[in-house]
Structure formats: structure tokens, C-alpha cells
Design a protein around this nucleic acid. Structure first.
Ligand code: MG
Length: 382
DNA sequence: TATGTCACG
DNA sequence: ACGTACGTGACATAT
């Protein structure tokens, strides 16, 4: 870990927090605990009279979807979101990691749990290395602190490209989805072309974004409601897009129905390699429970098969590294990604072999693809 | 310990 | 009328 870097980052975030806090108290007309959803709810929805968007068990919801909707009515919600981002990054990552460094090894040693996630995924704890920020630039900067211990050594990150959609192609044998991956097409652009009935070259970035939400949404069993919220479009339009998707990818539709039927009969859903997840609620009288169980059943074969494949890759990787007496180390797994600390003498070898081992770990009717990045830290390796 | 929130794939 | 996309873990607050 680059603790010097984290120390500076903590100070910088702290300054931004102070500024945001002052503006928040100003806009709210008084001091309160911004981290208390209860106090914040009173300020937003009673003192300022903004319209409540949704409720929680205990009161007003103030989560990011709510504050996004209130942004155009008052300047406070946006400042709250900024403050929340800053506090999350500082308390969960920037200030937490240095405190966890083992004085003997000068490293942070977490756990990868093999018997927690119901789908067969690993989970990571103390600390969780599988949710290190990447989606915002400020968060992403934190990855600069994850560096090789020795100067001149490297971090190598290798991640599967669209592994879950490739698995869906394999399981469903849908001709359109299979063809897309055999051509190594940009899958979201491909789906956009299918759904909007256009050529791939005529797809706009907005249409691609829509298709991306659909591609992921389908694998989780999303309905028109969720898709409409996600894309900020009408319920009717969202329904029409989902309908168009299933008309073009009929194999996916059939596969999803088959998975649910089979789960109802057997009481479990399974992966390509035979891992089973019991899903008893699939036969529940309670409609909400049954619908949630259907979505879990749809997702299990996809998420679970991806977990099986990367586990196979990790075992083969370990065997290979041991046999070759390598000095480099496999240090992290993030569901579709493996991270290595690499000795400079072994860099070229790993750049070649790591993706090869990962790509061959799963035998699917479409190819698996792995992207590799190298740098002095995890930020550069991506 | 429960709850709400938010970080990731 | 209600709820509404899967799988996780950590933090702060409130009780
Ligand atoms: Mg990936």
C-alpha cells in the first residue's frame, strides 16, 4: 500500500468535506448530522418542504435515487450527494486501509470467503477488496494506493470481457447472441441494433446505453418498471424495448422460461458445472417471494457459472505458478478479474500466460475473452 | 443489533 | 394496493 498517498488523499478529501458541510448548513439554515438519514429527511421534506419520493420502513428515503430526482428543485440534494461520496470514500477506504496494514509484512491481509455467496462466488472481507472504487474518478484514484511492494515490480490485472453475457449465449444457444460473440462484436451495440432494428453503424451512444441496461437487466429478470427507472423513460417504452429484445433473442426467452420451470420441479437452479442453489421460495404462495425467487433462479446459472470458471482458472493458475517456481503472486480476485503482483523478470511471461489460462478455463460455444493491463499500481493496470 | 446507505461485479 | 434486477460487505446512526 502507498500510505503516503492515502495520507495526502485523506487531507484533500477532508478539505472538500469541510467546504461541502459549510454549504449544506447554509442551504439547510442550520447545523445537523448530515450522516443521519432521519435528520436529513426532516430537513429536506419538512423544513424545506421538498416532495418525498419514496419511503423506508422507518421514514423518508434519502438515497441517491431520491436525491437525484430532487436536484432540479433545490441546490441542497446535490451537495448532500457530494458530501456522501466524500465521506464514503474517506471512511471506508482512504482512512481504513492504512489501519489494517500488518506491521510484519507491511501488507493488508483480507479474507476471501468460499462459503458465503449462494451462487458460488467468493466474497471478500476484512477488508472487502472486491468493492474498491472505480466508477468515479475520485474513487478510482484510491487504486493508486494498491501498488507492488518493491520498486520496479508491477501490478497486472486480467479481467474477463462480458463473461456473464457469453455464458448466457452458451446456456441459451440463442443464435443472435452466439453470432455476436463469435464475431467479437461490441455486445451492447449489437443488442441496440437488434432492438432498434438498425445497422450497428447507425447506433448512437444513447441507444448503446439503453441496450447495455437491457443486456444486464435481462440477466437479473428486470421488468419494465426497473428498466423505465434506470433509463428515465416511460413504463410503456420500457416494456416495448423488453418485448423487442425477446423477439430478437428468442433463445434467451426460452432459456429463462426453461430455467424457471426446472427450478419449480427440482427446487434448485444450477450452474453449467452442476453447482446447485436451493430456491425453495420458487413454489411460495407469496407472490413477492415467488417473483424474487424466479429472478434469483434466472441469475444463478449465469453468475454461478462465471464463478465456477474463474475458480477453475485460479486453481490452474496456482498449479502453473508453483510448477514454474514463479516469484510473482496472485493476490486478488474480483469476480471476473484476477490481480497479480509481478516480478519484472516474469512480466512478459504472465502477460501471455495469465489470459491464456483464464480463457481456456471455460469450454463454451463462444470464446472467452480476457483483457490485460499492467502498471505500477492497480489504477494504472486498468 | 437493526437500518439506511453506498462501494463493487 | 404493493412491489418492482442478481450477488456481496462496511460504515454511521439510532436504539
Ligand atoms: Mg470485465
Amino acid at each position: 500500500m502507498d500510505t503516503k498517498f492515502l495520507k495526502i488523499m485523506s487531507r484533500n478529501i477532508g478539505q472538500k468535506m469541510t467546504r461541502a458541510m459549510e454549504e449544506i448548513y447554509d442551504l439547510a439554515g442550520g447545523v445537523f448530522n448530515i450522516n443521519s438519514p432521519k435528520q436529513l429527511g426532516l430537513i429536506l421534506f419538512e423544513k424545506l418542504g421538498l416532495p418525498p419520493v419514496k419511503k423506508t420502513k422507518t421514514g423518508y428515503s434519502t438515497d441517491v435515487t431520491v436525491l437525484e430526482k430532487l436536484k432540479n428543485q433545490h441546490p441542497l440534494p446535490e451537495k448532500i450527494l457530494e458530501f456522501r461520496m466524500l465521506t464514503k470514500l474517506r471512511s471506508t477506504y482512504v482512512d481504513a486501509m492504512p489501519a489494517l496494514i500488518n506491521p510484519k509484512t507491511l501488507r493488508v491481509h483480507g479474507s476471501f470467503n468460499q462459503t458465503v455467496a449462494a451462487t458460488g462466488r467468493l466474497s471478500s472481507s476484512n477488508p472487502n477488496f472486491q468493492n474498491i472504487p472505480i466508477r468515479t474518478e475520485m474513487g478510482r484514484e484510491i487504486r493508486k494506493a494498491f501498488c507492488a511492494q518493491e520498486k520496479d515490480h508491477f501490478i497486472l490485472a486480467a479481467d474477463y470481457s462480458q463473461v456473464e453475457l457469453r455464458i448466457m449465449a452458451h446456456l441459451s444457444e440463442d443464435p443472435n447472441l452466439v453470432a455476436a460473440f463469435k464475431q467479437d462484436a461490441d455486445i451492447h451495440t449489437h443488442t441496440a441494433a437488434m432492438v432498434f432494428n438498425l445497422k450497428q453503424e447507425d447506433i448512437t451512444s444513447d441507444m448503446r446505453r439503453t441496450a447495455k441496461v437491457i443486456n444486464f437487466g435481462i440477466m437479473y429478470g428486470a421488468g419494465a418498471h426497473r428498466i423505465s427507472q434506470e433509463l428515465n423513460i416511460s413504463h410503456g417504452d420500457a416494456g416495448a424495448i423488453i418485448k423487442a429484445y425477446f423477439e430478437r433473442y428468442t433463445g434467451v426467452k426460452d432459456y429463462i422460461e426453461k430455467t424457471i420451470t426446472e427450478c419449480k420441479e427440482l427446487g434448485y437452479a444450477s450452474t453449467l458445472y452442476g453447482r446447485k442453489r436451493p430456491i425453495q421460495d420458487i413454489n411460495s404462495e407469496n407472490r413477492n417471494l415467488q417473483e424474487a425467487a424466479k429472478r434469483a433462479a434466472i441469475n444463478m446459472p449465469v453468475q454461478g457459472t462465471a464463478a465456477d470458471i474463474i475458480k477453475i482458472a485460479m486453481i490452474r493458475m496456482h498449479d502453473w505458478m508453483k510448477k514454474e517456481n514463479l516469484k510473482s503472486k496472485m493476490i486478488l480476485q474480483v469476480h471476473d478479474e484476477l490481480v497479480f503482483e509481478v516480478h519484472p523478470d516474469e512480466l512478459e511471461l504472465l502477460k501471455k500466460q495469465v489470459p491464456a489460462i483464464m480463457e481456456l478455463a471455460g469450454k463454451l460455444i463462444v470464446p472467452l475473452k480476457v483483457d490485460v493491463g499492467v502498471g505500477k499500481d492497480w489504477y494504472e493496470a486498468h
